[in-house]
Design a protein around this nucleic acid. Structure first.
Length: 511
RNA sequence: GGCCCGUUCGUCUAGGGGUUAGGACGCCGCCCUUUCACGGCGGAAACACGGGUUCAAUUCCCGUACGGGCUACCA
């Protein structure tokens, strides 16, 4: 499958639906792997038992599948480095944590969450807002550094709850080169002694991540910017394990920001701006926790991917429409931007429009068919293909195929009264009825022949196109908008067309 | 508050010591047209600010402002 040693992973936490920023992270990992001939891996980081949400893992995989970003290795995908679900690797982490303690790189801590919370509150009351469990404060805490070896062993033997914390060195500067940001530095005196192993025996993200990335031979860690501050801890962990030589390279992605206002894009913004912020719909008990997705809004996966790819990256050329394959070929980490990117829903729609315009009507038919079925509209494949051909230039979302041409399937439900009143008169009515007759008697029922027949009728009777055409259109569609009138007539067929015209005349008379 | 990261049109961005600062979305106008679209053409619209460095800075450096992230036994 791969012809290089490049291995990247997308490592989401199954705590709910995968938001669109997560999809972009997956995309960049995927593109980088493809570009380099490497391997794209999915790893499920379910070490927080409290936040685990059933169905979330399935949702993640469904989303990746919809986007066309399937991993080569991962839960359900096989691979030599499994299991790929961290909850199934629980036993591994404890041993590594203990190894660190033995090497003096980590220590047992007996302070409970409650005690630490109380400590923070107490410090805050004294005006110290940044209490940290770190190399300055750990000597005041209950841990294997302050307790005698005997006491520590006694507590462990007694089954007293404990965590294992990373012993951050004093007075060092941790510097590394981020592939997106360049050189980044942190002072170890500013770093806290992160918990590596929790009291429930589960590892924290920090431990599990480093151990798994090492064991799975990950070469590049491409993740969101929210991880930048803890990267120093991760570097220190690689050093503590003696794995620095094979440490992966880091690339921290800029975040996706709200369309307006401050902060990063949140699930709330979907409802607020009537736009999707998840790839697929997510059903939860509470309505406010249920969401529609890009798919349900009528986006093509290719367009969604194309849009996402350009949120924080661009190829440096003026080409904007890229297939997944083209993106893979053009992708490079150096072209990733550093600043956060605002989510631009108009641009997302534009991408989708471009893909619909370029799509084959046969293909559109397949995509529109389920939407039709949901509405209870039943038409033949042939009709639907022609309809898609007719409408695709005036559609932005797949759902517009339903909304914009509803009258094709349901008949006209409301007429544009204002425009009827402007043109309708007894004289026009007479002409209109004659015109209906001409259409009824037409032998060649194709758009070109119909147009010729109607135009010669208009000319022969000294009528105005500007009067007849709009009325014809409104009679058939109810609105002034829509595709070519004669193509509409051809698609509707003689019986339907004549029926609509007769019905319209009655209605027009009553305006 | 502390730490880290960032800052080119409203938005996504290209560019980079000397450019008429380019493209796209959106917006406006014109053309095409039986309508709406599509398409074509054109327009308004940006280097956050202050100091350096330099013959020259939007581009390099330092500050400031602003924005973002992190600051849990969550990821």
């Amino acid at each position: 499958m791969s012809n290089s040693n490049i291995r990247v992973r997308f490592a989401p936490s199954p705590t709910g639906p995968l938001h669109i920023g997560g999809v972009r992270t997956a995309l960049y990992n995927y593109l980088f792997a493809k570009k380099m001939g490497g391997t794209f891996i999915l790893r499920i980081e379910d070490t927080d038992q409290g936040r685990y949400v059933p169905g979330a893992e399935e949702y993640i995989i469904d989303s990746l599948r919809w986007c066309g970003l399937l991993p080569v290795e991962g839960p359900g995908f096989g691979g030599e480095y499994g299991p790929y679900r961290q909850s199934e690797r629980k036993d591994i982490y404890g041993e590594y944590a203990v190894q660190l303690v033995k090497n003096g790189k980590a220590y047992y801590a007996f302070d409970t969450s409650e005690e630490l919370d109380a400590k923070r509150e107490a410090e805050k009351a004294k005006g110290n807002h940044n209490f940290r469990y770190d190399n300055a404060t750990r000597n005041e805490m209950k841990n294997s550094l302050t307790l005698s070896g005997e006491e520590t062993q006694k507590r462990l033997a007694a089954g007293e709850p404990y965590t294992i914390r990373l012993k951050i060195p004093v007075d060092e500067t941790v510097t590394f080169t981020d592939l997106v940001r360049g050189e980044v530095s942190f002072e170890t005196n500013e770093l806290d002694d992160k918990v590596l192993l929790k009291a429930d025996g589960m590892p924290t993200y920090h431990l599990a991540n480093i151990v798994d990335d090492h064991l799975m031979k990950i070469t590049h860690v491409i993740r969101g910017e929210e991880w930048l501050p803890s990267s120093a801890h991760h570097i220190l962990l690689y050093r503590a394990f003696g794995w620095e030589a094979t440490m992966p390279q880091f690339a921290h992605l800029p975040l996706i920001l709200k369309p307006v206002g401050n902060g990063k894009l949140s699930k709330r913004d979907g409802a607020k701006f009537n736009m999707p912020v998840f790839p697929l719909a997510w059903e939860a008990e509470a309505a406010e926790d249920s969401f529609s997705g890009f798919r349900e809004f009528g986006f093509l996966p290719e367009a969604t991917i194309n849009f996402l790819a350009f949120l924080g990256w661009n190829p440096g050329t003026e080409q904007e429409i890229f297939s997944l394959e083209e993106l893979s070929a053009a992708f490079s980490i150096e072209k990733i931007g550093k600043a956060g990117a605002r989510f631009d829903y108009d641009k997302a729609k534009w991408f989708n429009q471009q893909y619909i315009h370029a799509a084959d009507p046969q293909q559109l038919k397949e995509l529109v068919r389920p939407l039709m079925a949901a509405k209870g509209y039943e038409v033949s494949d042939e009709f639907l293909v022609s309809y898609c051909e007719l409408m695709k230039d005036r559609v932005v979302l797949l759902t517009d195929f339903i909304d914009e041409g509803q009258y094709f399937f349901t008949g006209v439900s409301s007429f544009d009264d204002q425009n009827i009143a402007k043109r309708w008169s007894p004289e026009v009515k007479t002409s209109f009825e004659s015109l209906t007759g001409i259409i009824e008697q037409a032998t060649d029922f194709d758009a070109a022949s119909l147009e010729a027949a109607v135009k010669s009728f208009i000319n022969d009777n000294g009528l105005k196109m500007g009067t007849i055409f709009p009325l014809l259109r409104i009679a058939l569609a109810g609105t002034m908008k829509g595709p070519d009138v004669f193509k509409m007539i051809e698609l509707l067929g003689k019986a339907d067309t004549v029926g609509r015209l007769q019905k319209a005349v009655k209605y027009f008379d009553n305006i």
